[in-house]
Write a protein that binds this DNA or RNA. Structure first.
Length: 155
DNA sequence: GCTAATCTGATCAGCTACCAGCTGATCAGCGCATTAGC
């Protein structure tokens, strides 16, 4: 079963905090996301997803509002400034051969594990579920690239 | 219909070993990503 994670429902108070933080910086670093997660009582990964979705909505909204605006080039410059001042990323995880063995085996069985499988794997190898999800995303992505490069001998 | 969750693909950046390749983290998505819960 490729079950999805249950939908998070942010309260008005939680949203107030997140929106205020977004207005200050739409690209928060790991430390800021962790602090926000504590403040709104959720996981850092949920804060990350919230910012991703918010940026996507914000961009398309801004685009339609300023579509014919000749000043839009100034917005572009501002966006580039924002990107330049990005905060620190999460520290890079490193996996032991045993952890990788477990992940690769699971990937072979099912490259699209649902939330239950990911949580089970996370528990088994002792890492957060969000890291397991990222590992599978990267693995699938590189698997697709590799398959594109390989000759199609058996299509 | 709104929006959290998920996806692909591109890119950034740390680590290992000696400059490049591998891989974890982050990001956009443009006829404005798609899927799915509420």
């Amino acid at each position: 079963m490729n079950q999805r994670r249950n939908r998070t429902r942010f309260t008005e108070d939680q949203l107030k905090i997140l929106i205020k933080a977004f207005d200050q910086n739409p690209y928060p670093g790991y430390a800021t996301k962790q602090r926000l997660a504590l403040e709104v009582n959720t996981d850092e990964s949920r804060v990350q997803i919230w910012f991703q979705n918010r940026r996507a909505r914000h961009q398309s909204q801004k685009k339609s509002e300023h579509d014919e605006d000749l000043e839009s080039s100034q917005d572009q410059d501002h966006a580039e400034e924002e990107i330049q001042s990005r905060e620190d990323r999460r520290h890079r995880s490193s996996y032991t051969p045993s952890q990788l063995h477990t992940l690769i085996q699971a990937f072979t069985n099912n490259p699209y594990p649902g939330i239950n499988t990911r949580e089970q794997l996370a528990k088994e190898i002792g890492v957060p579920e969000s890291r397991v999800q990222i590992w599978f995303q990267n693995r699938r992505s590189r698997f697709h690239v590799q398959r594109k490069r390989e000759p199609h001998d058996q299509d």
